[in-house]
Write a protein that binds this DNA or RNA. Structure first.
Length: 950
RNA sequence: GGGCUCAUAGCUCAGCUGGCUAGAGCGCACCCCUGAUAAGGGUGAGGUCGGAGGUUCGAGUCCUCUUGGGCCCA
């Protein structure tokens, strides 16, 4: 047997490596992203890339895609959630640009709000500046705090903007929108004016956490929970109608029973307006030491023990729902209350009947709203009872009220039991004093009031908009958002804080409130000129300079601007971000409605909804056409990410270890609408997959080193349909269409998959392997080689375009290598719109290839390990394959192929005894010893300049 | 507790309006190449679709219940 590694007849094998056209390129195998991307960012910035592209598209008269960025909060460093969100957005922007569209994109930040103010206050405390602040007049104090907050926000906007640019996102970072900019503030205030004009803004009571010590409302973040000793009391509320109760329990009752409640805040009892029960729980009527009371069945035993009741007799039982509507007498004053239902009634403690005071609790408030109860709060800001309380309580502190009320109840026989106990209770974080719930006046947007425009309520309009006019991705977003809109309460717009946009309302000496569309717009003008700090530095008359009461039909009778007092509420920050459609899209001429809002699915209740309501109120139209949501990052185990569980990843670390393009490549691969599992391993996998793409690109570029399209390229139209090049080009055409379609429908994952498969399967495994021989061994200028290079050039150019939205740095780098010019700019490219004529039997050839590969695998058993030691015999009764010529052998990776007319399976020919070309390693049948002593095929001999005849 | 949602090979995911032996990539195993080489190529082994019940001639794909996640409310 012959030695397979050498030719038996060859005298001394010589190397032909120098005579081959091997790949060469500056496009490195190792990407070195962490090091190179920052340079790319700097280069783009220096070239004003965003502006340049926008100008180019504008000049070309391109259609505009209106995309609006939701503002992240200007606090802290960006996290993986931001990475996901910003990269998805950037893929949208870049893929639209790559379609030749215009896509202005203004990044924004949410600047106001409690988290920043809270941080700043802590810092002021730590620096010892807080005490001095407290001595300032209120307006000056607020301005001082606001100044610190603004500095804080600016610092993080700068930080985040750099981080976002490091993610290679393309946006107008020179002119971002900030909700604290005077312009933005003015536009927000104007939206408010439009809502007031529509008659949906009102002022009403609502319970909030209240610090008696500081006489102010507090937000959740300003509370500290500390142990405190409080009384707990069990109180009997006597039923009004004995028979009605009997009917509910289906028994005869002789004495009037009571409803027993439990509370740890006896001081709120004067404000009791209802008792809540759980409709699905079971309640019993029991005789307890002679007194008949209603109590939850599950809690009877516990109550009996706690209250030390000795005689217990259960008389009857019913469902909570049977009790609804029954009435009771208030034990302290002349008032009839009602049994209502509530979902927060639990069987964990108490009696299963919950004392409900809508003026003193969030849940009670909601129940009260639903049941049409008054928001009654007889407690003043200083923690004393007002004149509506019983006279023995008026002027007394509520803490004294606890004892007074308990004593009173004991005297009147309503008190079942009283004891002190320790529990965790909210305290004012600054004064360390206990906090109470107290209802205060707040501003609201009514969702059910008819608007002046056409009488439709905001809720009705929102239901129509989300039901019919807005497109949801994924589709279930519609159901989710509609469910939220259906059940949402009125929007409480006001906050009692310093760091925010003031609600431009004034109080007249007679307590009337001045807030008309015209007065609001006058303040908007003042804010636009001087910023919203003007609210604290200017007098009312100055703020209302542009307002003429005489020409304002809504102006209150006898208003005098010199006697007005500025009210101190600020807007809920959601109202500011919810006005961005006006303050950014409309104000900057980008136009409304936006084509797309893209955020996490938490924004169905947040930004999406709170942008929809103001826009519907102000314009009657939704501010967006399509809402796209992504899911949330969870850990490898599918559980929520948090610093404490240690599964949180740092974006800076990811960028350092993998680079932005790898992170982006990963993002593009995600089914983003569901939860997204994040783990370092997944980035490693993405890195591997990125390298495959990169190597394919590198190989393409390497084989184009001696190629100049203008000089060497052939016309794509002239490519023979039966050539492998026509097939590759046709595949590329399909890929282009599929990827562009995927991008335009936000099916990023599909785009990722199609690109990946194209690079690995179509190119790397098939086309590039099949054409290696001709690229390396054909004479440099052979038409066959030039034809393949022409197609490879077109495919490279296409790949750069398709990859640009996902891995812009890599696409940029590859494109510049392809064009051989540092100035080449892939970002300014438009679609190629390739076309190809390809023999329809190529799919049959690919099936054949598959069969050949299997046969070759089997041939290994006979010792044919190397496919170049094999030839194939193709049964071709229909004459299908003959016209594909030498490409058949190349596509199958064998030395030669021949077709026979007979039927049957593909056969493998053992060519190990035939001479092998020293240069191409093929045994193609033309190999023989040449004049220089080497074994060469005709093609190779000619390629190195030998006369084929010798 | 309520609304929406997810659960398919070791891992990450496809599976449209119910219908051929449930697909892909990664990983893994074995092999080839050593002229894409801190590369490239080939072949192959792995799931009965979270669990239970039901509708249907037929269900991963519809219904009910259930378990475990996520978002938003409470």
């Amino acid at each position: 047997m012959s030695d397979q590694s050498t030719n038996p007849t060859s005298k001394k094998p010589r190397g032909f490596k120098d005579t081959l056209n091997l790949p060469a390129t500056t496009f490195a195998m190792r990407a070195n992203l962490a090091q190179n991307e920052p340079q790319t960012v700097a280069r783009w910035e220096a070239a004003s890339m965003y502006a340049r592209i926008d100008d180019a598209r504008r000049e070309a008269g391109a259609p505009t895609f209106r995309f609006h960025d939701g503002p992240p909060y200007a606090n802290g460093s960006i996290h993986v959630g931001h990475l996901l969100n910003k990269v998805l957005k950037d893929i949208v922007v870049r893929s639209r640009l790559m379609e030749g569209m215009r896509c202005p994109y203004t990044p924004g930040w949410d600047c106001h709000g409690l988290p920043i103010e809270h941080r700043v206050m802590i810092e002021l405390h730590e620096k010892g500046k807080a005490a001095k602040l407290a001595t300032l007049p209120e307006d000056s104090r607020r301005i001082a705090i606001r100044r610190e907050c603004a500095k804080y926000a600016e610092k993080f906007i700068k930080l985040q903007a750099v981080q976002m640019q490091r993610l290679l996102t393309l946006a107008d970072y020179d002119e971002p929108y900030l909700t604290m900019d005077p312009q933005y503030e003015a536009r927000t205030i104007e939206v408010f004016a439009e809502l007031v004009e529509q008659g949906v803004v009102y002022r009403d009571l609502k319970p909030v956490h209240w610090s008696i010590e500081n006489q102010t409302a507090l937000a959740e973040a300003e509370l500290e929970y500390e142990d405190r000793e409080d009384p707990q009391v069990f109180v009997d509320f006597e039923a009004v109608d004995r028979e009605a109760v009997g009917k509910a329990f289906e028994v005869e009752i002789e004495t009037t029973p009571s409803f027993m409640i439990w509370t740890t805040t006896p001081w709120t009892l004067p404000a009791n307006l209802a008792i809540a029960v759980g409709p699905r729980y079971r309640y019993v009527l029991a005789r307890l030491d002679g007194q008949e009371s209603v109590i939850a069945r599950e809690l009877l035993q516990a109550v009996v023990e706690q209250c030390g009741i000795e005689e217990v007799e259960v008389l009857a039982e019913c469902a909570g729902s049977d009790l609804l509507g029954l009435e009771y007498r208030h034990p302290l004053l002349e008032r009839i209350g009602r049994i209502v239902e509530a979902d927060y009634v639990t069987l964990e403690d108490g009696t299963g009947l919950v004392h409900t005071a809508p003026g003193h609790g969030q849940e009670d408030y909601r129940t009260g709203q639903r049941e049409g109860l008054e928001v009654y709060c007889p407690v003043l800001g200083d923690g004393t009872y007002d004149e509506t309380a019983p006279d023995w309580l008026q002027g007394k502190s509520i803490w004294d009220g606890n004892e007074l009320i308990t004593a009173r109840l004991r005297e009147s026989g309503h008190l079942v039991h009283h004891e002190l106990f320790m529990h965790s209770y909210p305290h004012d974080w600054r004064s360390k004093t206990p906090v109470i719930f107290r209802s205060t006046e707040q501003w609201f947007v009514a969702v059910d009031r008819p608007t002046k425009r056409d009488g439709q309520s905001l809720r009705a309009m929102a239901m129509t908009a989300t039901g019919e006019n807005v497109n949801f991705i994924p589709a279930w977003g519609r159901k989710r958002m509609q469910g939220m809109i259906e059940s949402r309460p009125d929007w409480c717009l006001s906050r009692q804080r310093a760091w925010g946009l003031p609600i431009p309302a004034f109080r007249m000496p007679d307590e009337q409130v001045l807030l008309t569309p015209a007065s609001i717009r006058a303040v908007a003008a003042a804010f636009e000129a001087r910023g919203s700090d003007a609210w604290f530095s200017d007098r009312p008359a100055e703020l209302l300079e542009g307002w003429d009461p005489a020409s304002d039909p809504d102006a209150p009778e006898g208003v005098d601007v010199t006697t007005l007092e500025k009210m101190q509420d600020i807007f809920d920050v959601w109202f500011e971000s919810g006005s961005s459609w006006a303050a950014v899209m409309r104000a900057r001429g980008q136009g409304i409605p936006a084509d797309l809002y893209l955020e996490g699915s938490d924004q169905h209740r947040g930004w999406f909804q709170l942008s929809l309501l103001p826009a519907l109120g102000a314009t009657g139209e939704a501010p967006y056409r399509t809402l796209l949501t992504h899911g949330f990052m969870v850990g490898k185990d599918g559980r929520k990410m948090s610093k404490s569980s240690g599964n949180a990843l740092s974006v800076d670390e990811l960028l350092k270890d993998f680079g932005a393009d790898v992170c982006r490549w990963w993002v593009c691969s995600l089914p983003f609408e569901n939860d997204i599992k994040v783990d370092l391993d997944f980035f490693r996998v993405a890195g591997e997959s990125y390298r495959k793409i990169r190597n394919t690109l590198r190989f393409l570029l390497g084989n184009l080193a001696d190629f100049d399209v203008d000089r060497d390229g052939v016309s794509l139209d002239s490519i023979e349909p039966e050539s492998i090049d026509a097939w590759a080009l046709a595949e590329a055409v399909r890929v282009e269409q599929r990827v562009r379609h995927a991008f335009s429908t936000y099916a990023f994952r599909d785009a990722h998959q199609v690109i990946y498969d194209f690079c690995n399967e179509t190119l790397s495994a098939i086309y590039l392997v099949a054409t290696k021989d001709r690229l390396y061994c054909d004479a440099v200028g052979s038409p066959r080689r030039r034809r393949t290079q022409t197609v490879m050039h077109a495919i490279s150019s296409l790949l750069c375009r398709l990859l640009e939205p996902v891995v812009p740095h890599t696409a940029d780098e590859a494109f510049r290598a392809l064009q051989g010019s540092e100035d080449a700019n892939v970002h300014l490219c438009e679609p190629l719109d390739l076309s190809a004529r390809c023999d329809h039997e190529w799919s049959a050839v690919m099936n054949l290839r598959h069969a050949v590969l299997k046969a070759l695998e089997e041939a290994k058993a006979e010792g044919i390990d190397n496919p170049l030691d094999a030839g194939i015999v193709i049964p071709d009764p229909e004459g299908t394959f003959g016209r594909f010529g030498d490409d058949l052998a190349d596509v199958c990776g064998v030395s030669r192929a021949r077709c026979v007319a007979s039927l049957g399976e593909v056969a493998i020919e053992d060519l190990r005894n035939e001479p092998r070309c020293d240069r191409s390693r093929k045994r193609d049948g033309t190999v023989r010893e040449r004049s220089d002593g080497a074994m060469l095929s005709d093609r190779d001999a000619a390629a190195i300049g030998l006369d084929p005849a010798n």
